[in-house]
Structure formats: structure tokens, C-alpha cells
């Protein structure tokens, strides 16, 4: 680990008012912070992987820099982009001073995080979306927390090591060399008890009876065999919002589940549930 970058004290993070963390996750975050290693978070979609970074930043009162990775993202884009087209344009049609290359260098999210005057939380979201080699291209920068802009020779060095949170949807194998450097945590689907807490945080006015009924239905739905996509936490929260707004009383509804579309997103699943209900 780079010694020239200061490390924070241990045990800093314990969730926020709107974000409930499990013990294991809190522990993993603190290990990552203490060891100054990136935290790689995986888990089912909708278990709050991205929200973790936001809430960690909020809890520690640090700015958050987001880098949303897409299938076309290249590692270098995260550090900086040299806008050749703008420079070409300026040189042909007379714009600003084209001799100053630095003007055409734009820092990417990771570049910004390293150039920041103080400590930040850097979120690299859905790293598995990019090319298979993408994580390997970032190894050096994640280790040393510095990089060089070739065009201008400028060296960007982090003053304080950013806290790096990386999320992945488990879709692709990440390279071993990259995995070795990370602290890993798999967000498990919340237990019923934890889910009660989570729902209460988002819907503080929910009554025990309604909470019980919704969770009963929700976990029943998740237990349905052969479901293509199980409903997630965020979908449960949305569903309860929909129920509240429409004023539907779950206890009185006979048969089907109201607003099923907020919970199940594929036709096959809705059909499957229909068949089961009839049987």
C-alpha cells in the first residue's frame, strides 16, 4: 500500500438514517477503508450496491465522485480525455489558443477523484459492463493512486487516498489480478427482520399490519419457483409507495396482487404466477 497517502482510522461507517447496513457489510466497508483497498460489492440487482457509496459519502461527509461504466467505456476515459476533435476544430476555424494542450484535456471521474483537493469517495459503478480487460487497465492507478497525462506530462497524484467502492452485477468474470487487490463483499438478500427495518426507514408511517401483509406477499413471491427475475428490495419499496398512493387495502383485496407490474418485470413471470394462482 502506498505509504505517502494517509489512512483513516478504523470503524467509521455504520449506515445512515436512510440506509440500513448488515453487520457483515459494515465490517467489509471498514476493512476496505482500513486496508486502503477498493471494496468490490456484488449482489442481486436492487440490493443497494450503488446506494452504499452514496450513503458512505454522506456518513463520512465526503464528496462523492461517480463513474458509471458502460459497455464502451475505456479505462483511460476515466482518467482523462484528450479532446482532439475540439482542438482540430479550433485550429481550422480559429477558436482559442490551440497551442495550450492542457485546455483540451478533460479529467474523467477517476482523474477528478485523484486530483481532488481533499479525500473523496469514488464510486466505479457496474465495472463488469465494460470490456473484460477494463479492470486490469486500472490496476496501477488503483494501487498507486496516481497517473500521468501523456500529452502534457502532468502527473496527477492523490493527496488523500480516495475510498473506492466498485460495484458489479456478477455478470462477467473479473480478472484475478484485479480481484486480488480488492476487498470483496456479496450483499445477500435481506432477511425478513432486516427488510422490516429497511421498509420502515423508507415508509416510517407504515402500520405493523400492512408491513406484515406486504412482506408476507413479497417473500412468498420471491419463493415462487422458476421465477426469471425475483423482485428486489427497491421494487418492494416502490410497490409499497404505489399501494399507499392508491389507498388499496391489502387485507381487502381478493385474489391477485395489486400493481403486480412494479414487482415482476417479465411477461413470463406474470404468466407463471397467474397459472399458479389458478392451480
Amino acid at each position: 500500500m502506498a505509504d505517502d497517502v494517509s489512512d483513516p482510522p478504523f470503524e467509521q461507517f455504520s449506515g445512515t438514517a436512510t440506509y440500513i447496513v448488515s453487520d457483515d457489510l459494515r465490517h467489509a466497508v471498514n476493512v476496505a477503508v482500513a486496508l486502503a483497498r477498493p471494496l468490490l460489492v456484488r449482489g442481486e440487482p436492487g440490493t443497494g450496491k450503488t446506494l452504499l457509496a452514496e450513503n458512505l459519502a454522506a456518513a463520512l461527509a465526503l464528496p462523492l465522485v461517480r463513474w458509471h461504466v458502460k459497455s464502451t467505456t475505456k479505462a483511460k476515459d476515466g482518467l482523462y480525455v484528450y479532446d482532439t476533435v475540439a482542438r482540430l476544430h479550433d485550429s481550422r476555424f480559429g477558436g482559442d489558443d490551440v497551442k495550450d494542450i492542457a485546455k483540451y484535456i478533460k479529467l474523467g471521474p477517476m482523474g477528478e477523484a485523484l486530483a481532488a483537493p481533499s479525500r473523496v469517495v469514488l464510486l466505479i459503478d457496474e465495472i463488469d459492463k465494460a470490456d473484460i480487460e477494463f479492470p486490469n487497465d486500472l490496476l496501477l492507478e488503483l494501487d498507486a493512486m496516481r497517473f500521468r497525462i501523456d500529452e502534457t506530462g502532468r502527473e496527477v497524484v492523490a493527496r488523500e487516498r480516495p475510498i473506492v467502492i466498485i460495484t458489479s452485477n456478477n455478470e462477467k468474470e473479473l480478472p484475478d489480478a484485479f480481484l486480488r487487490r480488492c476487498v470483496f463483499h456479496y450483499i445477500q438478500f435481506p432477511t425478513r427482520e432486516l427488510m422490516q427495518e429497511i421498509v420502515r426507514v423508507h415508509h416510517p408511517d407504515i402500520t405493523d399490519r400492512v408491513l406484515d401483509q406486504t412482506l408476507e406477499l413479497f417473500f412468498g413471491l420471491r419463493a415462487t419457483p422458476k421465477l426469471r427475475k425475483k423482485p428486489s428490495t427497491s421494487e418492494l419499496i416502490d410497490w409499497i409507495s404505489a399501494l399507499k398512493k392508491s389507498g388499496v387495502d391489502l387485507g381487502r383485496v381478493g385474489g391477485g396482487i395489486p400493481f403486480l407490474g412494479t414487482l415482476l418485470k417479465t411477461e413470463a413471470d406474470i404468466e407463471l404466477l397467474g397459472k399458479r394462482a389458478k392451480a
Binding site: 465490517h27 476493512v31 480481484l179 463483499h185
Partner: peptide, 10 residues
Amino acid sequence: RLCRTLTVKD
């Protein structure tokens, strides 16, 4: 917990 978070990445 600690050992799992550091050594098992899958």
C-alpha cells in the same frame, strides 16, 4: 468474516 472478505472473491 475478515478472511472471507479478503480471500474469497466469488
